[in-house]
Structure formats: structure tokens, C-alpha cells
Amino acid sequence: MILRALWILPACAMLLAVAIAHAEIPAQERKSGAEFMSPQTQAMQADDASNPGMLAVLDGEAAWNEKAGAANKACADCHGAAEQSMKGVSARYPAFNAATSQPIDVAGQVNQCRAERQQAQPLRAESRELLALTTYIGLQSRGMPVAPPDDERLTPFRERGKALFNQRLGQLNFSCAHCHEDNWGRKLGSAPIPQAHANAYPIYRLEWQDVGSLQRRLRNCMSGVRAAPYSYGSLEFIELELFLAERARGMAVETPGVRP
């Protein structure tokens, strides 16, 4: 009798562990944030004539061909037509930057190129110019699956990103997972809680009346739980971006997305 009772103990412990961990969303249940929007907002995103993100794309296209910095070079002078050279780039970023031994996202890469190749001042985080370029670069991956690189060197950063995603924070003491893995599809006030897949950034958010990056969105959520947001371009954000890219692997890129 005692022996029979004993094997139950580890089984109980396992059950308990499952109950505490957040339910990761199975691949077949993953939904883009667009599926939680009203049909009107979906139509706005689907039609390039009504998607306000396309205005940023036009700005980005102009910036791509504009000479800048002491080197007097445009992005196009090295990279050529973005339609070919930037195809799939946003889908696989953040990537590992060997020079700094750290991961880097598209916005960071743009500024690194500006500093090294164009010898120009870096663009301010969340500035109109930087968002225009990242939106234009993002558009070149539209429809392609999110495909983070299988780079061993990224693993520790991605793991830290996952830990941050599951880390309780702020006065409300919530982690990202509390809403976006345990309660997606339910409502927070009147707004549906999406699964938080980062496959449409930079987005045109109707609430912002403007285009914004994934980091701006993450900062919004952080102040929502009354936490001090990480600063733009911080390693924490890049780590979160890495984890979110892995979490959205295979989902179609929607840049420029429209969100309510």
C-alpha cells in the first residue's frame, strides 16, 4: 500500500508544476492581432489605399534614396532596390551583431549603418524618419513567414527574453503571459486581449494616430501594469523582441499593420 502511494507523489508534483506554468499557445491556435480587430479595421489594413501606414512607407522610400552624412551615400547606393535587398530582412531580425556581441533589431541596424557607412548622426528612437525607414524595410517582408535565425549565439538572449515575458512587474504585478497567454480572447475593459504576436510592426495604431514601433507598444503595456518602462533600444527590449519573434515563428508578416 505504501509503495503504491509513493509513486503518486512525483505525479502530483508534476501536475502542480503544469498548473503554475503559463499555457503556451499551441501552433494551431495562434492568431494574429488582426483577427481580434473589427471588420472595419481589418479592411483598413488590407487595402493599401486606406492603410495609413502606407504614408510612412512613402516617406521611407524617399529616405531610402536620399543621400545623408559625411559619406554622402543613400541606403540605395549600397543596398540597391529595397524590393530585392530588404526582402525577408524584417522577418529574420533581430539578428546577432558580431561587432558588439549582442543582438540587434532593424532600427538598431539602420542606425549602425548610418554611423558606419553614411557617417551620419543616428536617427532618434521613434522618430518619424527612423519609423519611415523601418516600415519601408518591413513592407518588403510582407506575407513572408516570421523566420528568426537558428543562431546559437542568440539563445541566451532569447531565453532572457522569455524570462522577461514571464516576469511579474509593476504595481499590478502582471507578466506579459498573464494576459497574452492565459487570458487571450477575453476582454480587458471593452478591448479584446490579443495573443501579442509581433508580426505586424511597425504598426499604425489608431489610438496613437501615428506609426509606432514594437518597443513603443511594449512601453504602453508596461505603463499599463504601472511598471517603469525600459528605455528605447535597451537590451531588455531586444531580448523581448527576440523571444517574440521565436513565439511568432511561421506567422505571416503584416507590416504595416493597423491596430485599434
Binding site: 487595402d47 489605399a49 495609413p52 504614408l55 512613402l58 494616430q209
Partner: peptide
């Protein structure tokens, strides 16, 4: 006809 102008309003 569809028109959109970039403007902060």
C-alpha cells in the same frame, strides 16, 4: 476615389 493626406490634424 480614395484619398489620404499625411497631416497631424
Amino acid at each position: 476615389i480614395k484619398t489620404m493626406l499625411s497631416h497631424p490634424m
